[in-house]
Amino acid sequence: MTTVDVRLDHLAIAQQWAADPTSWPVAPRFNASERWYHRLAETSDYEVWLLTWLPGQGTDLHDHGGSAGAFHVLSGSLTEDTIAVSPDRAPRITARELGEGAGRRFGTRHIHRMTNRSNQPAISIHAYGPALTTMTRYRIGASGLDVVAIERAGAQW
């Protein structure tokens, strides 16, 4: 069982990194074929990632393998679809658009997908604690939420 230090404010960490792009080891890049991402920092308590999103780019439904976290939209706009799962009902999707300067914290059992549904590029900063070790990819099937794959850090990303 992974333990999470609830004293860490992942959103504050993401905002702190967003406020100082001169401290980043790389500049943001955009890739026409897929989302671009780069880890900015890793400590014993958390890690920070820089992500770029061209219009239409996004993730599949996924969790963060037991890590809590947060993201901050540095520029552009992203839509987060969160999934609520109940044993007696079909999974429910709730969409939330987050524009420049917006951010959000999430817990260790959070399942979502992120998409740039705007017509402008977007840049976001994500912080996770503890550092990601796995991510589970999901799809909504006839029986509810189905696991598609479990990806391991260092092997699949």
Rank of each mutant, 00 (worst) to 15 (best):
M1T: 07
M1Y: 10
M1P: 10
T2P: 12
T3C: 08
V4Q: 14
V4F: 15
V4L: 15
V6K: 15
V6Q: 14
R7W: 09
L8C: 14
D9V: 04
H10F: 15
H10I: 08
A12M: 13
A12F: 11
I13G: 09
I13S: 10
A14H: 13
Q16P: 07
W17H: 12
A18E: 03
A19P: 13
T22N: 11
T22M: 10
S23C: 07
W24C: 12
P25I: 09
V26N: 07
V26I: 14
R29P: 10
F30I: 02
A32F: 13
S33F: 12
E34K: 15
E34I: 13
R35C: 07
R35H: 08
R35G: 06
W36L: 05
W36D: 05
Y37R: 14
Y37W: 15
R39N: 05
R39F: 08
R39V: 06
L40M: 07
L40F: 11
T43L: 02
T43P: 05
T43M: 04
T43Y: 07
Y46T: 04
V48E: 00
V48T: 05
V48D: 01
W49K: 04
W49A: 01
L50E: 07
W53S: 01
W53P: 01
L54T: 03
P55S: 06
G56Y: 06
Q57H: 05
T59G: 09
D60V: 10
G65V: 05
G66Y: 03
S67N: 09
A68P: 05
A70I: 01
F71P: 00
H72T: 01
V73L: 06
G76H: 02
L78R: 05
E80N: 09
T82C: 11
T82G: 06
I83R: 01
I83G: 00
V85G: 00
V85I: 08
P87R: 00
P87Y: 02
D88T: 05
R89Y: 12
R89C: 03
A90I: 10
A90P: 04
A90V: 10
R92Q: 14
R92T: 13
I93N: 10
R96S: 11
L98S: 13
L98I: 10
G99E: 10
G99Y: 12
G99T: 09
G101W: 02
A102G: 11
A102Y: 13
G103M: 08
G103Q: 06
G103F: 02
R104Q: 15
R104K: 15
F106R: 06
F106T: 08
G107L: 08
T108P: 14
T108R: 15
T108M: 14
R109A: 13
H110T: 06
H110I: 03
H110N: 06
I111G: 00
M114E: 07
T115I: 12
T115N: 03
N116T: 03
N116S: 05
N116Y: 04
R117M: 06
S118Y: 00
S124N: 01
S124W: 00
I125Y: 00
I125A: 00
H126Y: 10
H126T: 00
H126C: 01
G129P: 04
A131V: 11
L132N: 03
T136Y: 04
Y138V: 02
R139N: 12
I140K: 01
G141S: 04
G144S: 09
L145Y: 10
D146E: 14
A149K: 02
A149C: 05
A153Q: 12
G154P: 02
A155R: 15
A155G: 09
